[in-house]
Design a protein around this nucleic acid. Sequence first.
DNA 1: CATATTTAAGACATCAATGTCTTAAATATA
DNA 2: TATATTTAAGACATTGATGTCTTAAATATG
Lengths: 145, 145
Amino acid sequence: MLLSKSCTYAVRAALLISKKKIDSGRNYIPVSELAKELDISFHFLTKILQKLTESKIMNSFRGPNGGITLTRSPEKIKIIEIVDAIDGMKLFESCIFGLPTCSDDHPCPLHKQWKLQRIEILKLFKTNTIHDLTINDDEFNLSGK
Amino acid sequence: MLLSKSCTYAVRAALLISKKKIDSGRNYIPVSELAKELDISFHFLTKILQKLTESKIMNSFRGPNGGITLTRSPEKIKIIEIVDAIDGMKLFESCIFGLPTCSDDHPCPLHKQWKLQRIEILKLFKTNTIHDLTINDDEFNLSGK
DNA sequence: CATATTTAAGACATCAATGTCTTAAATATA
DNA sequence: TATATTTAAGACATTGATGTCTTAAATATG
């Protein structure tokens, strides 16, 4: 897979928080609620979202009516920020064969072509925001069910 | 990484076999020689290349002067064949979030954009052959050292 | 036939990603 | 203050990819 499972969980959670904040008017959404609706293990999702709170993309609050929220408005959070926080930027920076010696100056046989592609993928994550991908009707279920 | 380590090993080995057949005039190249020059574990590379012989991309021969060869000429072997044999085609067929419900008829929020990208990546592997990527001078070392 | 070379097969080890579970800490509310 | 709710932290288990090692089978050559 292009993105790790953890990373896809993180993006899906961000999209669901965005939707739930709009739909319900609440600010903080409990992880238990997200995990249930996304069909992801609660404890595992908790740990993933902790990374996003550490990187200031999300904010958490403990106790009743607590949960997780987005620190900025959805149109100001780019998907790449979440991808970077979980998987890092290696995918967009390294050789398709994983060769550390490969570079613009010393290219592997696929360097030029792969570089064009990975820049396009990077653009995909850089141009789309949480807002852009937030589902505003009930046409698609982020649970995958 | 886009490709598994095993898959990058397989492609690099195929490129080195192609080069060595040209440079040395030999038909079969021993795995030990490939492993050493690619800086890959011998036994591990053996197992990977076994998959390629099972899928008829390569052919093996035991005993002195034995080794591995390409079954067809390098210009007739597409990179995608090796990728498919090792990693499968899932990357080029599935949702970026791994959602099994996502499809053209029932798209996730990134479906359309990601589909365009993965088709381009697929094209990269479909249009390039072993011959196209075989290094014909000593400008780049496939060992990564 | 004996020996050296080479792949085949499979057992086993290691490691990172994923997933589960328990306890602690913070917070709201009755 | 007591209780329920919720995240934080960390131990532990599982799984698949990666890597190591040993033995068997095939083949060429002296």
